[in-house]
C-alpha cells in the first residue's frame, strides 16, 4: 500500500496540473501564462496541463493584485484544491501590488490572502521565467509529498 502511495505521489509531481486565476491583472501576465502552453514554449512536454477545474489542480497560478471582490473567489478556489497544493504569484502586482499598490481598491500582493510558495517577478515576466518559477515550486511539492504529515492534512 505504501509503495502505491509513493508511486502516486511521485507521478503527481512529475505531471502537475495548473489552475490559472486572473486576479485583477492587466492581462499582460495572463497572456504570458497562456503563451507558455503554446507551441513555442510548450510546457505540456513537462506533463503540465492547464485545467479549469480547481478540484483537478495541483498548482495555482495567480496573476495580478487582490481586490476586495475577488479575494473571496481566490480563497474559495484555493480551498477547493486538494492538498498538497502550491501557490505561484506571477508578476510585480502579485508580489506587492506593483504599479497599482496605491489604488483604492487594491488590497496588495497575493500573500495577504494566501500563503505563497513561489514569487515570479517581472512586469510581465517572460514565459521562461514563469516556467522557471513553476519548476522551482515543483521541487517544494516533491518535498511536501515525502513528508508523512501530508496525508493527515488532506
Amino acid at each position: 500500500m505504501q509503495a502505491v502511495k509513493r508511486f502516486i505521489n511521485r507521478m503527481r509531481s512529475k505531471s502537475p496540473w495548473l489552475l490559472h486565476f486572473d486576479c485583477g491583472s492587466c492581462n499582460g501576465c495572463d497572456i504570458e501564462i497562456l503563451a507558455c502552453l503554446t507551441p513555442v514554449y510548450d510546457v505540456e512536454r513537462f506533463g503540465i496541463i492547464n485545467v479549469g477545474n480547481p478540484f483537478h489542480a495541483d498548482v495555482l497560478l495567480v496573476s495580478g493584485t487582490v481586490n476586495h471582490r475577488n479575494k473571496k473567489v481566490l480563497t474559495n478556489l484555493h480551498a477547493q484544491m486538494p492538498s498538497p497544493k502550491l501557490v505561484v504569484a506571477i508578476g510585480a502586482c502579485g508580489l506587492s501590488g506593483g504599479i497599482f499598490r496605491e489604488a483604492y481598491n487594491v488590497v496588495g500582493g497575493i500573500h495577504k490572502v494566501l500563503p505563497v510558495d513561489v514569487y515570479v517577478p517581472g512586469c510581465p515576466p517572460k514565459p521562461e521565467a514563469i516556467i522557471d518559477g513553476v519548476v522551482l515550486g515543483l521541487q517544494k511539492l516533491q518535498r511536501l509529498h515525502e513528508q508523512p504529515s501530508v496525508e493527515k492534512e488532506a
Binding site: 492587466c26 481586490n67 475577488n70 504599479i99 489604488a103 487594491v106
Partner: peptide, 24 residues
C-alpha cells in the same frame, strides 16, 4: 473582479508617470 481604480492614480502620479499606468 478586476477593478483597481486606475483613474484615481492620476492624483499620485504626475502626467509623465501616468504613461506607465495607462499602459497597464
Amino acid at each position: 473582479y478586476v477593478h483597481r481604480g486606475l483613474e484615481r492614480l492620476a492624483d499620485v502620479r504626475d502626467f509623465h508617470q501616468m504613461i506607465q499606468v495607462v499602459e497597464r
